[in-house]
Every structure is written in structure tokens, then in C-alpha cells.
Design a binder for these strands. Structure first.
Lengths: 149, 149
DNA sequence: ATAATTCCTATAAATTCATGTTGATATTCG
DNA sequence: CGAATATCAACATGAATTTATAGGAATTAT
């Protein structure tokens, strides 16, 4: 019912991939590698990375030896920014962000409900940076490996 | 990016409409009236109400003089139940509810993020009953009328 | 019987999701 | 310079899903 689009999900994974490679000197990552890592077609990644570039979350380096890198440090990129870039509005219903969308906001009994839910989510995604998520994933990975032993 | 489908939104409005008419003796409401009130086509309402009926949130009365009523009191119906009925899973991503959906949950760096967001939303919708929402809407309405004077 | 209303199935229209094609442009490296 | 590597850009296509409408069968009150 409430769904995060593939664009949002794939875009987040793309950014996490870049975050993991960030800061190793020559850190440009090519889409082909991300495609292999994340099992998402290059063509689709190309479409998804466009808004990320427009919103200056990634930088592109053209030509041989090129690729993409994060435009800022992983600790300075919030998940909310990523989701917002991938669609103008990071909200449950359009009327929450664009109040010209519907003429009945003033009297709509559900508007405040959806608005409240949106604010809740925004707060959650605002409190998570790429670094946070990478750290969480590393911990999880370590735990799994310990279990496997 | 994160979107509540029309089914979820329209279904909620449908239920709120029934809630407003609940308990007035002969309280069966026909879809035609809901259609006029909410400006949603009867045909679409018919589709939306099916899962609400299957999940025993509404009762139907067939034939002339029939219609629909809430199956329980508005204070006993939670918004989370409505959203859950309208789609099997009331979650941001399928893997959160159906762990056979993806094989990489154990190592997926984003799974826990989406799961956390889903839990947050669920908690929010769990704390809201139809009665709560109707009461909120009435207060809002009164306020608007006061302003108009 | 008739009218009202739910119920059931089909299908059209719009959007999202994903891949493919072609070719241009920029950059590195030998 | 020339060849290889990648991004950039504009489409085109097809499958899947969501959104919405339509026709008619079944049920019931009057």
C-alpha cells in the first residue's frame, strides 16, 4: 500500500556502493561495477543516477578511468536528501508537498494524517547518513560471519 | 518516492464516510452516496471495498435498501487495519513483510533501514482509530467555520 | 414485477519498471 | 595521434502494475 519505488531503493544502494568506495584515493566507481555488485542493469542505473547528479549528490568523471564518486563525505549525505533527489517529493501523498494539488486540504479529514506520517518518515530519514548506514551494514556483516563460524 | 496508493487513500476516505454515518439506526450507506461525497467513481469504490469486506471491516447488505456499514464501532477500527486490508502488506518494501521475497536480507545493508521506517509508520497508523480521525476532522471543521465568521 | 443495490468479470488507460539502441563527447594511455 | 574507456543524451520498446471505467448477473425491499 505504501511503497518505496525501485528508484528510491536502487538509488540508495547505488549511493551506498559509492560510499563504501569513498576516500580510497582513486575512488571513481564505474556503473558497470555497481551493476554487477547490485545486480541492477546499467541502463537503469544510468537513468537513476541522473537526478542524483543534478542534485549534486554525486560527481561524474568522464572518459577512460572515469566513473562516479560521492560529491560529499558519506557523513554529510543524508538519506532524506537521496530520496528527495530521486523524486521531487519524498512524501506519502502529493498534497502534502504541493498544496495546489488539491482544493480540499482545508477540510480534508485525512490530510493531517498523511502529513503527520510524512513528517515522521522525513525525521527518520533525516537522521540517517550514508556513513551511519555503512557502519550498520559492517556491524551486521561481522555478526553474520561470527555466526557462520 | 514513497507513495500511498489511491486505494489506500480512497479506502480510508470510504471508511471515514461510513464512520460518520455509524450508529444512526438505519445506517447502511450506499456506494452512490459515498461516490458523490468523495468524488470517486462507484465502479472504483466497488473494487476498493472488496478487500475491506473480506477483512471484515465492513458489512454489506444486498438488494434494494441495502448498502454498507462498519463491521465494528469506529473506535475499534484502527487505520493500520484498513491500510493492511487494502494491500496484503502495509510496508515500504516487500521484503520487510515477505522474507522469501529476496535472498539477501541477511546481508542487505538497506533492509534494516526500510524495516525501521515501516515499523515507525505501523506504530503511527496503529495509534489512530476511525473515531480519532473523525474527531480530529470535526475539530478542524469547527475551527474553519470560526475563522470564516 | 420493478427498482435498487451489491457482486463479479472484463478491459481500457495511465504509469512505473526495466532493457535496448544509437551515437556523441570527454579523457586516459600507448 | 589513435584506440580504448566511460559518461551523456535521446529515444524506443515491452512487461508489469496501478488506476479507472463498463456491462451485466444476483439479491432484496416494496
Amino acid at each position: 500500500m505504501i511503497r518505496l519505488s525501485t528508484k528510491g531503493r536502487y538509488g540508495t544502494r547505488l549511493m551506498l556502493n559509492l560510499a563504501r568506495h569513498y576516500g580510497n584515493g582513486n575512488d571513481a566507481v564505474i556503473l558497470k561495477h555497481i551493476s554487477e555488485d547490485e545486480r541492477i542493469s546499467i541502463r537503469y542505473l544510468e537513468q537513476i543516477i541522473i537526478p542524483l547528479k543534478i542534485n549534486r549528490l554525486v560527481k561524474s568523471i568522464r572518459g577512460a578511468g572515469g566513473g562516479y564518486t560521492l560529491a560529499r563525505k558519506p557523513e554529510d549525505i543524508k538519506l532524506s536528501e537521496i530520496l528527495h533527489a530521486l523524486e521531487g517529493n519524498c512524501c506519502l501523498v502529493e498534497c502534502v508537498e504541493d498544496d495546489s494539488f488539491c482544493d480540499f486540504i482545508e477540510i480534508c479529514p485525512t490530510y493531517d494524517i498523511w502529513k503527520g506520517a510524512t513528517e515522521l518518515l522525513k525525521g527518520y530519514f533525516d537522521g540517517l547518513t550514508l556513513k551511519d548506514i555503512v557502519t550498520m551494514a559492517e556491524k551486521k556483516d561481522k555478526k553474520n560471519k561470527a555466526k557462520a563460524r
